[in-house]
Amino acid sequence: MQRVNMIMAESPGLITICLLGYLLSAECTVFLDHENANKILNRPKRYNSGKLEEFVQGNLERECMEEKCSFEEAREVFENTERTTEFWKQYVDGDQCESNPCLNGGSCKDDINSYECWCPFGFEGKNCELDVTCNIKNGRCEQFCKNSADNKVVCSCTEGYRLAENQKSCEPAVPFPCGRVSVSQTSKLTRAETVFPDVDYVNSTEAETILDNITQSTQSFNDFTRVVGGEDAKPGQFPWQVVLNGKVDAFCGGSIVNEKWIVTAAHCVETGVKITVVAGEHNIEETEHTEQKRNVIRIIPHHNYNAAINKYNHDIALLELDEPLVLNSYVTPICIADKEYTNIFLKFGSGYVSGWGRVFHKGRSALVLQYLRVPLVDRATCLRSTKFTIYNNMFCAGFHEGGRDSCQGDSGGPHVTEVEGTSFLTGIISWGEECAMKGKYGIYTKVSRYVNWIKEKTKLT
């Protein structure tokens, strides 16, 4: 034993070699072989497995989906700052455009905790909710729209109204504003409101030439003092309507412009014939205590009207009353817009006519005020429907199939267009061939041609 100890002390290297040989010859039971080890760690190889990531292109799944990435790591994937920024906006807080917040056709661009709407022409605001041009839906104005110097929408209202708090709607500024039905039992019968379409306001006024200088022999019209197929109006439903009495009662109609003036057809009036105007009328054979009678003290036909040349060209006249009318729910003026808007309103496509005229061709006159909704007829169809001249200051309205029309005794009465609950004068009943005849239409004086003249002559002093 002493000898062994001496050998170990003198030859430590020998001992180490012996131990190493023993270990190498022993069977290893701690580690699995290569094949079995792979069965336990069965993990798919990654895209760049075996390579240094710093030297390969980034992978979106590896960089940002398996674990949260930084902007720089995302930049490695896209290799483009702009594309990385677009991805980053949604990656950080989701897609803010998912709810489609942009209105009126706006395009949404996502941002971090926010979004941006790219608005089409005519709109602005956070969600493109603000109209900035009158060309689109009248700028959301209830009545009139004008573009300011910086191309912003400025709404306005006709006389007797003021802008509401929203700067879009119009509200009454006087007790009985024009064009409004205020009798409670008839307010439910107000005709369907007309909503502004998209309009090209630059070209809204037709490029028409008034044929002022045409000389033409007097034409022989049949029954051209021209509501057939209409309905009984309720008291106060058309408070701007008046009836004219002269040699015979209810020979023509008219509309209240203001307390002192009536507008009617020029062919209705004769110099030297006494005319009485009755406002607030409903049943011409009954006294309903809503009527107001006034005498006409002055007749002003349009300066281009000449019955000797043509009885229905420039067929418009103004009547001055001896005493002002007292405005109330049964006696209310009709609204008159400017030339541009009167023309736009007419193009809405349908209007209402009213009167006490004959209820059928050569038949009896109506006792109760009649009204009828009539569609506008395109000019080409209008011209083809008659052998008589249709001037540019006239328009056609009615039904091709016949059966409904204005008729004798309705002449001078109103053709009105309702705009968001307020009625505007767009025409004056003038003439036609018979009444409600198939293929024939009622012919009306186009008020847009005469609004400046009306307003100039009827100013209240």
Rank of each mutant, 00 (worst) to 15 (best):
V4H: 11
N5T: 12
M6Y: 09
A9E: 07
P12D: 05
L14N: 03
L14P: 08
I15A: 06
I17E: 02
L24S: 04
L24Q: 03
A26S: 10
T29I: 12
V30P: 14
L32K: 15
E35W: 06
E35F: 08
A37N: 03
N38L: 09
I40L: 12
P44R: 04
R46G: 15
Y47I: 12
N48V: 07
G50L: 12
K51C: 04
F55A: 15
G58P: 15
E61Q: 15
E61A: 15
E66H: 05
C69E: 03
S70L: 07
S70I: 05
F71I: 15
E72P: 15
E73H: 14
R75Y: 08
V77S: 15
F78D: 10
T85L: 07
T85A: 07
T85S: 07
F87H: 15
K89L: 07
C97F: 00
S99K: 06
L103R: 08
C108R: 01
D111R: 07
I112Q: 10
N113E: 09
W118H: 15
G125S: 02
K126L: 14
C128H: 02
C128Y: 00
D131Q: 15
C134D: 02
K137R: 13
R140C: 04
Q143R: 00
Q143H: 11
K146I: 09
S148Y: 06
D150G: 10
D150W: 05
N151H: 11
K152S: 10
V153L: 05
C155V: 01
C157A: 00
T158P: 04
R162M: 08
E165R: 10
N166L: 02
Q167V: 05
S169I: 05
S169A: 12
E171G: 05
P172V: 07
A173D: 11
V174L: 07
P175N: 09
V183E: 11
S184R: 09
T186L: 06
R191V: 11
V195Y: 13
P197L: 09
D200I: 12
Y201W: 10
V202L: 12
N203R: 10
S204E: 11
E208R: 11
N213C: 04
I214R: 09
S217L: 06
S217F: 12
T218F: 10
Q219C: 05
F221S: 12
D223G: 10
D223A: 12
F224C: 05
R226W: 07
G229Y: 13
E231T: 14
A233G: 08
G236L: 05
G236Q: 04
Q237H: 08
W240L: 00
L244E: 01
L244D: 00
V248T: 11
D249M: 10
A250C: 07
F251C: 05
V257F: 02
A265H: 02
A265T: 04
H267N: 04
H267F: 01
C268P: 01
E270R: 11
T271D: 05
G272H: 11
G272P: 12
V273G: 09
I275Y: 06
I275F: 10
A279V: 03
A279W: 00
E281Q: 11
H282T: 12
H282G: 08
I284Q: 07
T287P: 08
E288R: 06
T290R: 10
T290G: 06
K293S: 08
R294I: 02
R294E: 01
P301T: 10
P301G: 04
H303K: 12
N306A: 07
N310P: 03
K311N: 05
Y312T: 03
A317S: 04
L319S: 01
E320Y: 03
L321C: 02
D322L: 02
L325Q: 00
L327Y: 08
S329A: 10
V331R: 02
I336L: 12
I336G: 00
A337F: 02
Y341N: 11
T342K: 00
N343R: 08
I344K: 15
F345G: 00
F348C: 06
F348I: 09
G349A: 06
Y352M: 05
G355S: 07
G355D: 02
W356Y: 14
W356E: 02
H361Q: 05
H361E: 11
K362R: 12
K362L: 06
G363D: 09
G363K: 13
S365C: 04
V368I: 11
R373L: 06
P375Y: 13
L376T: 07
R379I: 14
C382R: 03
S385I: 12
S385E: 06
T386H: 10
F388P: 07
F388H: 14
I390S: 11
I390G: 09
Y391T: 13
M394G: 03
C396L: 00
G398W: 03
F399W: 14
H400N: 10
E401N: 10
G402R: 12
C407H: 05
C407M: 07
G409A: 13
G412E: 03
V416M: 12
V416P: 00
T417I: 05
E418F: 09
V419K: 04
V419P: 01
E420Y: 14
F424D: 01
L425C: 00
W431A: 07
G432I: 04
E433W: 05
M437C: 09
K438Q: 15
G442T: 14
T445D: 02
K446N: 11
K446G: 08
R449G: 13
R449D: 10
Y450A: 01
W453P: 00
I454F: 00
K455P: 01
K455G: 04
K457N: 14
L460Y: 14
